[in-house]
Design a binder for these strands. Structure first.
Lengths: 234, 234
DNA sequence: CGTCTATTGAACGAATGAGTCCAATACCTT
DNA sequence: AAGGTATTGGACTCATTCGTTCAATAGACG
């Protein structure tokens, strides 16, 4: 019946439904939170019928988990790639750090980055194991990549790091500490100038603390807890 | 367990229902998120009838806003009070900073602190204005209190700060940057030793950057920190 | 060309939860 | 002691949404 005359119908064929669903789900979950997100809306946004969603992922919770893990993977891939661009020679170290920090933060500020972060904060209480998984897939890789990079710089004498792991954490904290406020938890677009200033200030403090100063004052850490420093002294 | 003794019938009288509701609401919202939190459950947890909740606060959203603002106020009161204990003389500055940081973080790690933070992250997309209000009531006051304290130390020569505002942000970032990971976004109890170590490391980096002689680059941050009041995007 | 699988639209059942109404009751004030 | 007010429990309305079912269809493939 209705021998529908071919055209005017959206292409029903098998495209990449799965990816479309994941994307739509991310947007929806982010906007409404897990509880209020409607599966039907996700389907609609993905240009897909609701049963198709249930065909691919069993139920809402499974879909949610897939969204988080998939996103964490992709975002951290981007960030790690950005970190690769940090040169090993110490030329204009501050500038190089600022540039790489800018890239990293751009990844985090992209639609996906903040959205994911907010989602994880939001639902951490309900899906504690999920956060652990995402951290393993995301944060840890970023942290290690940066720590490795910094260790190299330290080995070559361009930085004085007792512990590259700690330094990596501190650098990340310094350059991105203002982000939540600047972006109002990701709900506001950050003025590029504000961001640049924040990054510059963070890198500046980092350099003050860890750059091999021209002077003899390579002050060793006072009252340091014994922590296996993966980075040997200069 | 409500403190009241006696018989099977819970004391029906007018006690501090409002506070009880706010507390129960915080716990519930935190656990389930705004969308999935059930008002009936809040009432039950507060030892109160559901209509009473609606008598005090008009509806779910109003209740939520009250929870956030009230919590932000109280938490930041605590933190500001803790900051007052930072001495102005430079004796054992690192130790003093670590102690005050410990207090501040304790406030943030308490049931209320993390819960609130997670809640705001979670629902920032749906209640953007609410976050601004909470920030004004909470974060800004903490930041200013710390900046004032640091400025004093700087004036007396115990620190070398080009911009106490920036330094305050950096100190907070350094000592609490590891918190999300350590506590798994507030879902895991942080080992006191790990926390102490993280704080000590943060303070140590801060001291390296700002305690010794005037660093190589003492560039004061150019622009004043202005609040983009719902400014035009891009 | 004929078959098979993924997809579609639409509707359905069941459950859930916001917000309201009301008569009964406990506390506070005068 | 009397009267007013806040509170209570529970039932009720109404809307929403998860997850499912089913016949019809579009493209893939031998």
């Amino acid at each position: 019946m209705t021998a529908t005359t071919t055209s005017a119908a959206p292409p029903r064929g098998r495209i990449d439904k799965r990816a479309a669903i994941l994307g739509a789900a991310l947007r929806t979950f982010v906007q409404d939170g897990y509880g209020l997100a409607r599966v039907e809306r996700i389907a609609e946004l993905a240009g897909v019928a609701k049963p198709t969603v249930y065909n691919h992922f069993g139920d809402k919770e499974t879909l949610f988990r897939a969204v988080i893990l998939d996103g964490a993977q992709r975002t951290s891939d981007q960030i790690v790639a950005a970190l690769e661009t940090l040169p090993d020679d110490g030329a204009d170290l501050a500038g190089a750090l600022a540039r790489v920090a800018q890239k990293v933060i751009d990844c985090q500020l992209g639609e996906e980055g903040w959205s994911l972060q907010r989602l994880m904060y939001a639902e951490a209480a309900r899906f504690p194991d999920l956060f652990d998984d995402a951290l393993r897939r995301g944060g840890v890789r970023v942290h290690n990549a940066l720590a490795g990079r910094l260790a190299r710089l330290s080995n070559r004498g361009h930085l004085h790091l007792a512990d590259p792991d700690v330094a990596a954490g501190h650098l990340l904290a310094l350059v991105s500490g203002d982000l939540p406020v600047l972006s109002a938890l990701g709900t506001r677009k950050v003025a590029p100038d504000d961001l640049r200033r924040a990054i510059a200030a963070g890198v500046d403090t980092f350099m003050r603390a860890f750059a091999s100063g021209p002077g003899p004052s390579a002050q060793p850490v006072a009252g340091r807890r014994t922590r296996p420093a993966t980075g040997p002294p200069r």
